[in-house]
Write a protein that binds this DNA or RNA. Structure first.
Length: 744
DNA sequence: TCCTTAACTGTTTTT
DNA sequence: CAGTTAAGGA
């Protein structure tokens, strides 16, 4: 099913399930897979409503993978009680492996290496099949690190997120009998957002559709926004050749948005070359024109939006929950949050994973992890000296070494602390006490969860230092722990009988804050564009339509990635039902520096003659005379080369003429007062980072003259510490700062 | 061993 | 700006 935005895709899927059930298919034979918990919850609810509570297997890919792996753990070298490592734990494991193995990483960060391993896993390349490429130093490192990392995971009976798919794909691929059994078990498979499947997911789906080839895939190539996570858009584009008997259904009518909104979306996505063209239409009304607003600063942007929402709510025209604000990166939420708080507008932010990522929560859960899976070295490392019990780095290193030499888990090594060379008696005693503590806690493994957590907290005295403190942060931590206990109690109530420690942990590992988003609560929603997929709101604000942010600067040099950014904007736009505002700010604070922005090239690809163009606030840096603007308004800016590299002028086919000048005032050619006085060189005259030397006098447009105290870094990372007369010492990234040498 | 403070560095999106 | 590491001191 090729289904455009707002075409009623979920409705079709749920009705298909209901139809199958009416035809006599048993609920257990139906498997519906989604990407997010939110989507699977929604689907389950709707199916249940439609069928009076039929128990169809609705799950995310990852949860489904985890479930299968518990059943078939031994086939892939795991124990059924395996631990799922989140990104943090996985990263730390990788770091330890690199360190322990003495792997030379050259200048590559663990993140880069982890990303390469992840990419390999998503392409279904097992650790023993990975081939380094000649001329790619990174791949040489990965060829060493990947096997070591994977073996460490297996030794701890742990998996990372990618493994949940990789192991299952491997299992199905290598065991014909298991595959046949599962194919028969899941005769009817439905997949949502098929455009986001990666290689591993594709193989899973194929394997489940051989003897009983009933696979219903829905998706929209124009909404593929997970390429960076290994999603392969070819899976959907080639569906028909993969499954020659496939019947293709197109849903092109949009029931969600107004004509104005749909037109903007349609024309924007038309700039993508790699796509199956599809015609979107709607019988909905024309609606208000889409607004495109230029603000002077991000604070103006945030305040105006907050004001507008507050006014609409106060006037009784809208309720808070009618509004959503989307942004490309989480970091952009700050000023919006502040503005909404100031206006007293209730809001909820959807952020990935937040709660279970907190230190205190992870600390406590690590004890559970270790009880559940004593081989989990990551959990042992985390708990062994948390809270502090006098076991230091040296001791831990010795234990780890001993464990490695004897093929033991870290916890087992701890049990034999006194035999380990190089551990002093005092430390050994602490270690022994720790091991005893874990053993005592392990007896609780089958108790209700709240009791397990409560005992951990008392026995470890985890809360004591927090209770003695009066810092805000520590109080927060205590509150979070309380929340965790409440969470556990609710889990116990839902799972009477106890002994579900593993299930609880799994829900924590795979949980996402997005699940917490309540569509019922009357609040403004703020989230990233990625999180917005699948949702809809009457009024949508899309902020920071700026070059480097949307499209993100990491994507602007690659045509394929640029198209994905365009799809991201498309997704955001098509969430809106009645009203849509796009905006950008002329100045935005970024990494602590105020920078002048360049509007997103995507704005040039929209039908601006049919949109309402507005300019709010004034640009304080470049006071009057905005009318006097040259032709090179876009390029010649103080910004670094990465900004200059892709001026919007280089727009895609189908783009309209450049911006109307009065909408995008840029640095004027006229002299400002300061420059006339000779104090300021033109802010547009870029000075290369190397032009600065120690002790030099420099000029800053706001702080005035200053002296360079120190310099560090190189190239575009070169920084200067400057002593100003009144503003004190400040640090600047030279490539992005408005600093100029005072003397010519 | 552990805490505090200063310096440094690197920035997307998520299961 | 924030998250992390290195250094210094008790």
């Amino acid at each position: 099913m090729l289904a455009g935005p707002g075409s009623g895709k979920t409705r079709v899927v749920t009705h298909r399930i209901a139809h199958l059930l009416r035809e006599g298919v048993r609920p257990g034979e139906i498997l519906a897979l989604t990407f997010t918990n939110k989507a699977s919850d929604e689907m389950r609810t709707r199916v249940e409503a439609l069928t009076r509570g039929a128990r169809v297997w609705v799950s995310t890919f990852h949860r489904f993978g985890a479930r299968l792996l518990r059943e078939y753990a031994s086939y892939v070298g795991l124990t059924p009680n395996f631990t799922i490592y989140d990104v943090d734990d996985a990263r730390q494991t990788l770091k330890r492996v690199i360190e322990a193995g003495g792997i030379r990483t050259a200048h590559y960060s663990p993140e880069r290496i982890a990303a390469a391993i992840s990419a390999a896993k998503n392409q279904l390349i097992a650790f023993d099949q990975y081939q380094p490429q000649i001329g790619s130093p990174l791949s040489q490192i990965v060829a060493e690190a990947y096997p070591a990392y994977q073996q460490r995971l297996l030794a701890s009976s742990a998996v990372d997120f990618d493994d949940l798919l990789l192991h299952v794909a491997t299992l199905l691929y290598q065991n014909a009998d298991v595959r046949a059994e599962l194919d028969a078990r899941h005769r009817f498979v439905l997949v949502d957002e098929y455009q986001d499947t990666n290689r591993a997911q594709y193989v899973m789906l194929r394997a489940l559709s051989i003897d009983y080839p009933n696979l219903a895939a829905t998706g929209d190539p124009d909404q593929s926004i997970y390429g960076w996570r290994g999603a392969d858009i070819r899976n959907i584009l080639q569906f028909e050749s993969d499954f020659p008997d496939a019947k293709v259904v197109r849903l092109e009518q949009n029931y969600r948005s107004t004509k104005s909104i749909l037109r903007v979306a349609d024309q924007l996505i038309g700039s993508n070359l790699r796509r199956k063209a599809k015609s979107l239409f709607t019988d909905n009304g024309e609606g208000a024109p889409v607004k495109l607003v230029q603000y002077a600063t991000q604070d103006d942007e945030a305040r105006s939006i907050a004001d507008e929402i507050a006014n609409e709510v106060a006037a009784g025209r809208r309720r808070p929950r009618d509004f959503a604000i989307f942004y490309r990166v989480n970091a952009l939420s700050r000023s919006l949050e502040r503005a909404l708080r100031e206006q007293g507008v209730p809001y909820q932010m959807v952020r990935g994973q937040e709660f279970y990522q907190r230190k205190e929560i992870k600390d406590v859960l690590a004890y559970c992890q270790l009880i559940n899976n004593p081989r989990d070295d990551q959990a042992a490392l985390r708990t062994i000296n948390t809270p502090a019990r006098g076991i230091g780095r040296k001791t831990i290193d010795r234990l780890a070494e001993y464990a490695y030499l004897h093929g033991l888990s870290l916890l087992d090594a701890a049990r034999r602390a006194e035999q380990v060379e190089g551990v002093n008696p005092r430390s050994a005693k602490s270690v022994a006490q720790y091991a005893a503590l874990i053993d005592r806690l392990s007896n609780l493994a089958n108790a209700p969860l709240e009791e397990v957590l409560g005992t951990i907290l008392t026995e470890t005295k985890y809360r004591e230092p927090l209770q003695d403190s009066d810092s805000e942060e520590d109080l927060n931590r205590l509150a979070n722990i309380e929340e965790l206990l409440t969470d556990a109690r609710q889990f116990d109530e839902a799972h009477p009988g106890g002994g579900r420690l593993e299930e609880y942990l799994e829900s924590a590992w795979l949980a996402n804050e997005t699940d917490d988003w309540q569509s019922e609560s009357d609040k403004v929603t703020m989230m990233t564009l990625h999180a917005a997929k699948g949702l809809e709101f009457p009024v949508v604000y899309l902020v920071a339509f700026e070059h480097g942010l949307l499209p993100h600067e990491r994507s602007i040099n690659d045509e394929e990635q640029l198209e994905e950014e365009r799809r991201l904007a498309f997704v955001g736009i098509t969430r809106a039902r009645e009203a849509l505002q796009l905006s950008y700010a002329v100045h935005r604070d970024f990494r602590g520096q105020r920078r002048r922005t360049v509007p997103s090239q995507f704005l040039l690809e929209m039908p601006r003659d049919q949109m309402e163009l507005v300019e709010v606030g004034r640009d304080q840096w470049y006071p009057p005379n905005w009318d006097d603007i040259g032709d090179d308004a876009f390029g010649d800016d103080e910004s670094s080369d990465e900004l200059d590299a892709s001026r919007p002028a280089r727009s895609a086919p189908g783009a309209l003429e450049p911006f109307t000048p009065n909408l995008v005032p840029q640095a004027p050619k006229v002299m400002t007062a300061a420059r006339l006085a000779g104090a300021l060189p033109a802010p547009t005259s870029g000075a290369a980072p190397d032009d600065f030397v120690q002790g030099m006098t420099v000029m800053h447009p706001e702080h005035g003259p200053g002296k360079i105290v120190a310099l560090s870094g190189a190239g575009k990372n070169r920084r200067a510490t400057v002593q100003f007369a009144t503003a004190g010492q400040r640090r600047f990234v030279l490539a992005h700062s408005p600093l100029r040498p005072a003397s010519r």
